[in-house]
Nucleic acid binder design. Structure first.
Lengths: 149, 149
DNA sequence: CCCGGAAGTAAAGCAGCCTTACTACTTGGA
DNA sequence: TCCAAGTAGTAAGGCTGCTTTACTTCCGGG
């Protein structure tokens, strides 16, 4: 669905002073907030796992669909699912109507984790909104949204 | 100099619709622009290499200092330097005054590559500035700068 | 019943880091 | 002058988070 090889690279540290650096720094702030209490509360989860957990709808989803939404290969996504299942954050069963399909669902623990990461992000948003004022913060979001479209 | 473990995770694909996703999408745009003609013009270079090349001042720099600026370990940075040296984008010599120190400099080819990536980023900035208008684009930059501070 | 395509898995590989454990070299004293 | 302590860098190995290639299993249409 998406181009080959938009993969790796960290882009974490400062990148001179262009926007790349500014955007990266903002992103890093969010990652840090999620990671802060993560290991203690949800052992084994890394940022990518929270992201995946958030992508799983309450009714569950198939690997293939999740892979498309997450913009990665089925194999890569399958690895994450296996890992999360081992740790008890998701569970999965083959569909009775089509036994090729594995329906992946969050467990209760997975729900908690998803809620946790969402809350962490909202915490950062609150801080930013407070610092800039709601109007400017909303303007930032709107601007970024336009750049994406 | 920086906290342990702000390392991995892609954060590349969409992250529901919060800012994390918006910021990530913008960053991805920049990476794509750099990568677009990269393999053809500067074989072997990936985004992280362009970033490193830009960090090297004209007079050269030591591994240790580069590592600090890039917010990574000396070993990690050293690997990049070795790689770039093998491909001819940088060169290095031990200092005569302190032979522990390896001074890393860009070659002419390395200068070209750094200029190329800078131009790619400026191209994206131009597109964005055009789409939003200069005032709003500058507001975006200013806002992001404030969030970082 | 067979064949093509879809869902998923297995194996291996690579980028981009990190940690731990060095070696080589310099510098500041006793 | 010599040595201990500290600094610059290297070596080896590990791990995440992906990828590609090559299957297997299973469904559905003819």
């Amino acid at each position: 669905m998406t181009s080959v090889n938009d993969a790796p690279s960290q882009l974490t540290g400062p990148w001179s002073d262009h926007i790349a650096g500014l955007l990266g720094a903002a992103l890093k702030r969010i990652r840090s907030e999620i990671l802060a209490a993560s290991e203690e509360r949800f052992p084994g989860l890394r940022v990518s796992h929270y992201r995946l957990l958030e992508l799983i709808p309450p009714e569950g989803a198939r690997i293939t669909d999740l892979a498309e939404v997450a913009v990665m290969t089925k194999q890569g996504l399958g690895q994450h699912v296996d890992y999360l299942q081992r740790l008890g954050y998701v569970e999965s069963d083959r569909l009775r109507t089509d036994r090729r399909v594995r329906l992946v669902r969050r467990t209760a623990r997975g729900d908690e984790a998803a809620a946790y990461s969402r809350a962490a992000i909202e915490r950062v948003e609150a801080i930013w909104s407070d610092r800039l004022g709601p109007a400017r913060y909303e303007a930032l979001r709107e601007t970024l949204r336009e750049l994406g479209g």
